[in-house]
């Protein structure tokens, strides 16, 4: 099964990468953009999707600083 894991910086943690992108967009004429955050997309084929949460907790995300979302 093909799965996607979205990994995001936890809310409240300073995200300078998101801020840099947010500042860059108006320079290209895209106004009205707020709350930009940059995360990571991991795509993987898995035989047992029930293992995905544990994979996320142990390796794919660092739960102290990142939230993850599994999309199947």
């Amino acid at each position: 099964m093909r799965a996607r894991v979205l990994v995001r910086p936890k809310a409240g943690i300073l995200d300078p990468q998101g801020q840099a992108v947010e500042r860059a967009l108006p320079a290209l004429g895209f106004d009205g953009v707020r709350n930009v955050h940059v995360g990571r997309l991991i795509e993987l084929d898995v035989e047992d999707a029930s293992q995905l949460p544990e994979m996320c907790e142990k390796l794919l995300a660092n739960p102290l600083i990142e939230d993850y979302e599994i999309v199947q």
Binding site: I13, L14, P16, Q17, A20, N62, L64, I65
Partner: peptide, 16 residues
Amino acid sequence: CEAGMLPGALLTNVSL
């Protein structure tokens, strides 16, 4: 830190 042997985590520098 990743191994859980120390508390906390290291993030990208604020300056990037």
